[in-house]
Amino acid sequence: MAESKAGSANGTGLKALASAGEGDDFSVIAAIGGVRGVVESMLPGIVFVVLFVATQNLDLTIGVSAALAVAQVVVRLLQRQSVMGALSGLVAVGICLIWAWKSHEARDYYMFGFLTNAAYATLLGVSLVARVPALGAIIEFIRQLPTEHFRAWFDDWTGDKALKKAYTIITWLWMALFLLRLAVQVPLYLTNHVAALGVARLLMGIPFWALAIWVSYLIIATPMHHHKVAQARAAESAARERDGLNESTIITEKDR
């Protein structure tokens, strides 16, 4: 992907948020996959809605959209670049196209998106009810994989009131985003306004995602920075304490 140095170092999506508080090099464009990643994500949807509205030929629209999605993966393979993003996009587009093809309804191209948005909103809502903000758990899992001492890992970030509050706020934010998509797009689906639905899907896709990531970064950057500083100080203090114990042991053994 055409990423900046910051994007390459910090990753995309929630991986980028996991690096919040480490400096001022956060880039929204890099966090959503770079310019090329954005184009690759939006192009199949644009082609689908424009071609269907222009031709009203669902089979042709599905065929061209599928060919385009496959071509994106092939181009990345030929250029020896990472294909994970394009491949995951191919799978998602493939599911949407198969759904539309099986039902013979162009609007069903968007059904998979409704289901995923509903599932995400439900999971985030359940996490808020449980008082364990899902976005906080995911970001902390990415930032510091709890391969052992799970309880200590869990207590570390949930015990930081400022950080947990920030994670709770962005979890509410993302849940609202998913629910807003459903509130706007489902009525268009039910009334079979394919063109309007396609436009709404595009506008509420990457642009809304970019906005959510940017606002989330603004909310969590400061408390995460303070948390990381506190972690570093605690680790340094623990190291000094261990060194002190080791020196005491050596002195005691010499005295013997």
Results as ranks from 00 to 15, higher is better:
S4T: 14
A9H: 12
N10Q: 08
T12Q: 14
S19Y: 15
E22I: 10
G23N: 10
I32R: 02
G33M: 07
G34Q: 07
R36M: 09
E40K: 05
G45R: 00
F48Y: 14
V49M: 03
L51D: 10
A54H: 01
T55E: 10
Q56N: 15
L60S: 06
L60V: 10
G63L: 12
L68C: 06
V75R: 01
V75G: 02
L78D: 00
Q81T: 06
V83S: 08
G85K: 02
A86V: 08
G89E: 13
V91P: 05
V93I: 08
C96F: 10
A100D: 06
A100G: 06
S103Q: 12
E105H: 04
Y110H: 12
L115T: 03
T116L: 07
A119T: 07
A121V: 10
T122F: 12
L128M: 09
V129C: 11
V132A: 10
E140C: 02
R143L: 09
L145N: 00
T147M: 14
R151S: 02
R151N: 01
A152D: 02
W153C: 00
W157R: 06
G159C: 07
D160A: 02
L163N: 15
K164Q: 06
Y167N: 11
Y167S: 07
T171Y: 03
W174D: 15
A176I: 10
L177Y: 15
L179C: 11
L182Y: 05
A183P: 09
A183G: 08
T191N: 14
T191K: 03
N192A: 10
V194G: 09
A195Q: 05
G198K: 01
L203K: 00
P207E: 08
F208R: 03
W209E: 07
A210D: 09
A210Y: 00
L211Q: 12
L211V: 09
I219F: 13
I220K: 01
H225D: 06
A235N: 01
E236P: 00
A238G: 06
A239E: 12
R240L: 14
E241S: 08
T252F: 11
D255R: 06
